[in-house]
């Protein structure tokens, strides 16, 4: 069983999950669209490679935070679409709140030096 709970020290993993969940708030997307959305919304700063993206998507799906379905894309190819589940929304809310607290705390520490 490779599904691990979020290791508090593993910011990268948990952060990516959070970004993926956020990208799906407005509706379902396929994997490429998720990566594009993160890239665009972060002003080209964050680029997600497929070696990290798809394992993360599948892990979130196995945890029940995403649900998936196959459909036709805009170019009539077969694509897998992901959407948030209720559990996913809850998890996103919790993680966002946690992230805000953490980043505010870190910023405070860095300001003092």
């Amino acid at each position: 069983m490779k599904a691990k709970k979020d290791n508090p020290g593993d910011l990268l993993q948990g952060t990516l999950d959070m970004l993926i969940l956020k990208s799906l708030v407005r509706g379902q997307k396929h994997g490429y669209a998720v990566a594009e959305w993160i890239h665009l919304t972060s002003d080209d700063v964050l680029r997600v490679e497929e070696g990290a993206l798809y394992p993360a998507l599948h892990r979130l799906e196995l945890r029940g935070l995403l649900s998936s379905g196959w459909g036709a894309s805009d170019n009539n190819r077969r694509a897998k679409y992901y959407s948030l589940t209720a559990a996913g929304r809850k998890h996103l809310a919790a993680q966002s709140e946690y992230w805000s607290r953490m980043s505010a705390a870190i910023a405070r520490v860095l300001r003092t030096a």
Partner: peptide
Amino acid sequence: EWIHGLRLRLKALFHRRQLDRDVEDELTFH
């Protein structure tokens, strides 16, 4: 969450080839 994953995995167990094709298709699409 673990149970959910287990259920999905069990389902996938019986559709190995389909699973492989799905992963393949997803990446090809990307």
